[in-house]
Design a binder for these strands. Sequence first.
DNA 1: ACACATAGTTTGAATATCAAACAATATATA
DNA 2: TATATATTGTTTGATATTCAAACTATGTGT
Lengths: 138, 138
Amino acid sequence: MDPIDELNENLVEFFDRMSSWEQSVIQQGKLNVAGAHAIEKLGQFGSMSMKDLSKALGVTTGTTTITVDRLENGGYAVRERADNDRRSYIIRLTEKGNDAYLDHHRHHLSFAKEIASFLTDEEIECFTAVLEKINREI
Amino acid sequence: MDPIDELNENLVEFFDRMSSWEQSVIQQGKLNVAGAHAIEKLGQFGSMSMKDLSKALGVTTGTTTITVDRLENGGYAVRERADNDRRSYIIRLTEKGNDAYLDHHRHHLSFAKEIASFLTDEEIECFTAVLEKINREI
DNA sequence: ACACATAGTTTGAATATCAAACAATATATA
DNA sequence: TATATATTGTTTGATATTCAAACTATGTGT
């Protein structure tokens, strides 16, 4: 079989499984999908403006307004006035929001741990190195 | 840095990039997200009942009714009576539906090809082998 | 027969998302 | 400085997605 075909098949299946996994993790929590994604971005990249958050999430600013409204109501995040631009807000995770992020992060980590559990050290190293290369190049 | 942390970071980033890629590919086509996913499942696993399709997609049968209605209206799929159970339908891709599947498949293939283009043969082999192992074990 | 289970559809409500209009503020240009 | 233009975020109105629950038709077991 063509190595590319083989790579593709395994890639598609892996992506599919990871999607299901991610969705089930989100559904276990109290946040809706949009809120969970927003918290993940804010946790990963730190506080940012509505515009940058919209861009990171791949949605319009109107949609982000709703998402952040809900996060604020739930006590997960706050809007803070930007110092330099009075039109702009910086969205910051509260302690509760950060806890939610860390919880999600722990889930990811245990997923990675599970994967690593049935790989040899050499395989882990190779797999990580290739992923890093792909992330850099794509 | 802990190898697990490193694996996790790269995994999360890779998944994120692949999600964006998948979404942009779907948006280039004429199908909505649900329809595109349904066609992918039907193309991959072959014709199946509404119930099995719902399960494969991770949605309720009510949602799948809408999705398949639209695929049928667009000429991508047909409902066929199941031989053994008159309550049940088998959803089958039409030629147009199969073309759409093949087109999507080609996109995936060119994605895999792009990835492979900056990996060595050895890296491709290792990466594929690890993915296969993960898919088998998870 | 009869009750119960299952496949799929319909319905009504909740949620998500967008594009466009809008208000407030910033920036560039005359 | 004044004025036009651009940008940030919100609001609005419309459309799309999805679900749970009720429903129809059919199957299964007692």
